[in-house]
Amino acid sequence: MIAALALVGFAFAVRTTALRMLPDAAWARRAPRLGVLTWQAVTVAVPVSVVLAGLALAVPLLPAVTGDTTGILGACAFLLREHYETPGGIAAGVAGLAGALALSGRLAVSLAGELRVVRRLRARQRDGLALVSRTDLVPGAWVIEDHRAAIFCIPGHPAQVVVTTAALSVLTPEQRVLALAHEQAHLSGRHHLALTFAAAARRALPRSRLLAAAATEIATLVEMHADDRAVGCGERSDLAAALVKLAGGPRPEGVLAANGGPAVQRVQRLLATGPALPLRQRWSIQLGVAALSVAPLLIAAAPAIEAILRDYCSTALHT
């Protein structure tokens, strides 16, 4: 009972703290990859804690399930039941188990659906564009004849960077190199996986403010990370200029305009080079991420660990 309550309390505390401290955090803009990692740790820790809370409530059901009360298994189950006892008894156990299964099932189904949909969309783009692309104009990229300026990548196997003739004509050679390097950084950083997981979680629980904030922030931070990787190939101001050119042309038909997207922040960031995040701050954030990852398991296992310790100590004391 205590473990379940502690887990729910932990999940709530992590959610509240994250929503207060993480969105638009200045340090995450300076170290975007660490920012993504932190958001991921939070969005894993919260649902995992809730699922574990449900399972902790269900532990007392164990002896009933095994039906064996004499063997080692039975003894273990009995011991566990004693330490995870709830006043709610069987009813609380069944409710906890059902809740845990429902939440994890929902997340799994959403993830599977998301993966299926993006894989189909990517295959369609890859197969279709392969028929009309030129490969001899820009090394490593497909060139598509189109009057709309666009550069994007299709993740997957094989991954592909795509650029339109209109985009090539508005960019200088330096800007072109940087824009393509940005897309390559998306692919080598496997940013699509981070985006897919975040989108799947958000879709599974559309009313969660935490998961919505995580999806939005992760989308912004992977762009900034790709920008940081790309500027290794040229000037920051050139990448900023490329962003402005492609984000700000006249809007052709069929193109969605993104209100308040990360483009403005990205340009500001490229023009004002801030100092790197101090090493000490990096380490403390990484430590926090590690703690977030193991804390739910430790809390869930605390009663069992306590039982083992108590047995061990009493044996040690009496001999």
Binding site: E114, V117, V118, L121, R122, R124, Q125, G128, L129, V132, I144, D146, R148, A150, I151, F152, C153, I154, P155, V162, T164, A179, H182, E183, H186, H191, H192, L195, T196, A199, A215, A219, A242, L243, L246, A247, G248, G249, R251, E253, G254, V255, L256, A257, A258, G261, P262, A263, V264, R266
Partner: peptide, 23 residues
């Protein structure tokens, strides 16, 4: 195909990764 590619930006952020959104 390009219309599809440019239109998916908002809903399925992870299908294709665009250099920059249109503002």
């Amino acid at each position: 195909l390009m219309t599809d590619a440019l239109g998916t930006g908002d809903d399925r952020t992870a299908a294709l990764l665009h250099f920059v959104e249109h503002l």
